[in-house]
């Protein structure tokens, strides 16, 4: 990594860059005082934080933006489960109540978020047009049989739930210290994770996939679902470095044995940025 090049590239697009990282600037001060304690291994992480702080005022989504983004994702999920429930012969009777509980939660999330946005004096976004086949409105996407083939339906459900978990997680820093909204977002986030676990167990029990309730990545691929088409939704889940520390280097549960990569990745779910999530959904499931 050539730091000079990086800074020069940034200066080209942002002439004020050197001023932004001026140590006298308040946002930067608390970083520089820590300089001597920054670990070599964690430098990329430290730099990321520094850039984030330098640009915080420009890039931080407002609370309303975060809520409307969350609402859009909930519209998609609730539309998906309601469509699945309405599709005759799709969900086996034996699984009806199992899926219905998820459907109820997603419908409640929509109502709840609409209410929160209104209570903040803002206007909830309306639901966009969806294509559950992932075909951007053609109805002929890669998941064309999503409402006729239960196996496909559960595969898409798993994708939405795991991605939903990542999407909420990615927005938490934008709600820092906000007791009401952050707590609500974390609480919805936890419910999405419960759903993800439940759908994963169901897929496994049905013999549709050899997976666990948690995401067990390999060193090279975050995606453990057995569906290469959705690799992008799991990109980065194979991260084993947390806060600058290689998790597999910490003392393991079995003395003398190094922590396996799969275990290290499964112990942490990774966030996705708003732009990454929208890039995955818009033009596929969200009609553009």
């Amino acid at each position: 990594m050539n730091l000079f090049n990086i800074i020069e590239e940034i200066e080209k697009v942002d002439p004020e860059f050197t001023d932004r990282i001026n140590p006298r600037r308040d946002a930067i001060k608390n970083i520089t005082s820590f300089g001597s304690k920054v670990a070599l291994a964690s430098l990329p992480f430290a730099m990321g934080t520094m850039f984030k702080k330098a640009y915080a005022a420009d890039s931080t989504a407002s609370v309303t933006d975060v809520l409307n983004y969350a609402l859009t994702l909930e519209y998609l999920e609730s539309y998906f489960y309601n469509s699945g429930t309405a599709a005759k012969g799709l969900i086996p009777t034996s699984d009806a109540s199992y899926i219905a509980d998820i459907t109820d939660d997603e419908n409640h999330h929509v109502t709840f978020l609409q209410g929160v946005i209104k209570s903040l004096g803002a206007t909830p976004v309306t639901a966009p047009k969806f294509d559950l086949t992932g075909g951007n409105g053609s109805g002929k996407g890669p998941f064309a049989d999503v409402l006729t083939n239960y196996q496909t339906f559960l595969a898409v459900a798993e994708t939405f739930e795991d991605t939903g978990v990542r999407a909420y997680k990615g927005q938490a820093p934008n709600l820092l210290g906000n007791q009401v909204v952050l707590t609500a977002a974390l609480s919805i986030h936890a419910v999405e994770a419960r759903h993800a676990s439940a759908i994963r167990l169901l897929r496994c029990n049905k013999g549709y996939a050899s997976i666990e309730p948690w995401i067990t990545s390999s060193a090279s691929n975050g995606n453990d679902t057995g569906i290469p088409l959705i690799d992008g939704n799991y990109k980065g889940e194979n991260n084993i470095t947390q806060g600058g520390v290689d998790i597999t280097s910490l003392p393991s549960a079995t003395p003398g044995q190094k922590t396996a990569i799969g275990l290290a990745t499964a112990a942490f779910d990774e966030p996705l940025s708003m732009s990454d999530v929208l890039a995955l959904l818009v033009g596929t499931f969200i009609v553009h």
Partner: peptide, 12 residues
């Protein structure tokens, strides 16, 4: 956040 969703997966 990375940890709480894993706890929620366990809980479920």
């Amino acid at each position: 956040g990375k940890i709480v969703s894993v706890e929620a997966r366990h809980a479920a």
